[in-house]
Structure formats: structure tokens, C-alpha cells
């Protein structure tokens, strides 16, 4: 190939590169960048559902939400829910991944069944949970009553602690399959001979697990933790359907509180200000995790 021809090809490559990338970049700028800017502007304005005119109010929305105990409650809940869910998702996901990896009869069926929680639209699966945790007809309570463990129903969604536990339980139930699939992928990428060598050298199952498999798949475990955290942190559907933030905002999270304020309460400025708190927290978490992943990959 002659030099000019090669250069022409290279030229075409960079044109093609921009041609390929531009639609995505333009689309994201238009429908994420622009609304993001608008959201910031809303948070500094007094826009409401009834009065859509835009008036600059500075940081008044932020002052108001910072003075609101429900906001602090939501912020705390968001962290508590995310941290506990993430931990449980990683642990159960790891166990489930190891189960799915093993060869056994009926593996296909087990895989199909454990995927159900993730493939069902959140709103629908949460409705099933709403009925499972019903104050009168909960089958969980029925079993506990039959076993003689409780006298009367627990009233899952009506008591603050149980309601919080219920929200976390649904998040974990829903996200464990995804985490397991991601970690399964990681496990499959561990070279078999490393495992076998360790087994030959006399390392038992647990020793192999903690000294070889987990360190080698640490980046993938971190990725699944990241996804678990994102999905819990930003989700409002579970709280919205299950408890509507109740009892008396005890299970309110930032995402649902922003929705109640912004859409149902029609106070768009405040809703935007509340939602805006999500982003820096999420970004910080994501950067921390991705950094950790990169460090682990290098070592």
C-alpha cells in the first residue's frame, strides 16, 4: 500500500469516527445535558405546577429543604437503604453466583427461577410484595401465626422498623440476580488451571475461595456492588409502591421525596433541589468504586 493511500484511509477513519460518535453525543447533550441544566435552573427558581413562570429565587429552595426534617430523614434513609442493600446484594449475589456456576441437574430451571425478580418490572414485583406483606392477609404472617411465633399480625408496612426492613428486603430480592449474573461472568473468567493448581496443592474449598477466587474476581464484585448501589440509590418505585414513604415519612428516600414534592406536591423547584442532592453522592461513589477496580486490575 502506498503512503498517500494509507493517509487517505486514516483521514477517513477520523471522519468516520466523528460521524459515528456525533449522534450519540448530540442525543445525550440534548436529552441529558439540557434537562440537567434545566434541573439546576429549576432548583434555583420558584417554578410550580400551577405557576410555570420562571422566577429566580437563588438558594431559597435549598434553604427550605435543609430546614425540613423530612429531607434529613430521606437523606439518612437513602444512605441506610443503599449501604445495607449493597452489602446484602454482594453477599447473596456471590453465593448465588457460585450456585449458578456449579453443574447440577435442573440448573436450567434454577437459573430461570432466580432470574424472575430481575426481569419483572419493578412496579409489578413490588405490588406482589405489597400483597405478601399485607396487614391482614400476609401469608408470611399466616405461617408465623401457625407456627405459634406470633399472636397477631406483624403489620409489616405500618411499623417504622419493619417497613424499612421490607423496603430493603425488596431491593435485595430484586437486585441479587443481577449481581449474581455479573459475578458469574467474573467467575467464568478465572482461569481453570489456577483453581486446579491450588486444589492439587491441597488448598480446600474455602481457602481457594478467599485466597484465589475472591481476590481475582474483586473488580467484578466491585462492579456488581456499583450497580447494586446505583439501582438502590436512584430507585423510587419500591418506596412509592410499597410504603409511599410511610408510615409518616419513615421510609422516605431522596428519590421518592423529590417525586412527591416535585410532581404530586407540584413544587417543581423544590423537587429539583432535592433530586440534585443525589448526583454528587452517586458520582463520588461511582468514582471511588471505579478507582478501586482499576487499582485491583493493575495489581
Amino acid at each position: 500500500m502506498t503512503a498517500p493511500a494509507r493517509r487517505r484511509l486514516a483521514d477517513r477513519d477520523s471522519t468516520l469516527g466523528w460521524l459515528f460518535l456525533t449522534p450519540t453525543v448530540v442525543y445525550i447533550l440534548a436529552l441529558v445535558g439540557l434537562p440537567f441544566g434545566l434541573a439546576v435552573a429549576f432548583s434555583l427558581s420558584d417554578v410550580t405546577g400551577g405557576d410555570p413562570s420562571f422566577d429566580w429565587v437563588g438558594l431559597r429552595n435549598f434553604e427550605r429543604i435543609l430546614a425540613d426534617p423530612v429531607f434529613w430523614r430521606s437523606l439518612r434513609n437513602t444512605f441506610v437503604f443503599t449501604a445495607i442493600s449493597m452489602l446484602l446484594i454482594v453477599i447473596f449475589g456471590k453465593v448465588l453466583a457460585n450456585i449458578l456456576l456449579a453443574e447440577f441437574r435442573g440448573r436450567w430451571l434454577v437459573r430461570f427461577l432466580v432470574l424472575l425478580p430481575w426481569t419483572t418490572p419493578v412496579a409489578l414485583s413490588t405490588l406482589t410484595w405489597l400483597w405478601l406483606l399485607d396487614s391482614v392477609f400476609s401469608p408470611i404472617d399466616w405461617v408465623l401465626r401457625r407456627l405459634g411465633l406470633i399472636e397477631s399480625n406483624l403489620f409489616w408496612l405500618g411499623q417504622p422498623n419493619l417497613a424499612m426492613a421490607s423496603v430493603i428486603m425488596v431491593h435485595v430480592w430484586r437486585l441479587v440476580p443481577l449481581a449474581a449474573v455479573i459475578m458469574l461472568a467474573g467467575l467464568l473468567s478465572v482461569p481453570k488451571d489456577v483453581q486446579e493448581q491450588a486444589a492439587v496443592d491441597g488448598a480446600g474449598y474455602w481457602r481457594r475461595m478467599f485466597e484465589i477466587t475472591i481476590p481475582l474476581t474483586a473488580p467484578v464484585i466491585a462492579i456488581s456492588a456499583l450497580f447494586g448501589a446505583i439501582f438502590t440509590f436512584t430507585d423510587m418505585a419500591v418506596v412509592y409502591v410499597l410504603t409511599r414513604g410511610g408510615p409518616t415519612n419513615e421510609t422516605q428516600v431522596l428519590a421518592s421525596w423529590a417525586f412527591f414534592r416535585g410532581i404530586e406536591g407540584s413544587d417543581i423547584g423544590q423537587g429539583a433541589a432535592i433530586a440534585l442532592f443525589l448526583l454528587p453522592l452517586l458520582l463520588a461513589a461511582a468514582i471511588a468504586i471505579l478507582r478501586a477496580v482499576r487499582r485491583m486490575e493493575v495489581s
Binding site: 460518535l21 450519540t24 445525550i28 436529552l31 441529558v32 439540557l34 434537562p35 440537567f36 434545566l38 434541573a39 429549576f42 446505583i230 440509590f233 436512584t234 423510587m236 431522596l254 428519590a255 423529590a258 417525586f259 416535585g262 410532581i263 417543581i268 423537587g271 429539583a272 433530586a275 440534585l276 443525589l278 448526583l279 452517586l282 458520582l283 461511582a286 471505579l290
Partner: peptide, 23 residues
């Protein structure tokens, strides 16, 4: 740019839906 595009995914719908409904 790849990482930047991934970070776009982190912008929560809860933050965007208010202004997106305007759009």
C-alpha cells in the same frame, strides 16, 4: 469519553424527569 458516557448513566431519572417533562 467512554467513561464520561458511562457516567451519564449515573444521572438519576429522579433528577431529570422534572425538566424532561417540560421538554
Amino acid at each position: 469519553m467512554g467513561i464520561a458516557i458511562f457516567f451519564v448513566y449515573l444521572v438519576p431519572p429522579t433528577l431529570l424527569f422534572l425538566s424532561l417533562s417540560r421538554i
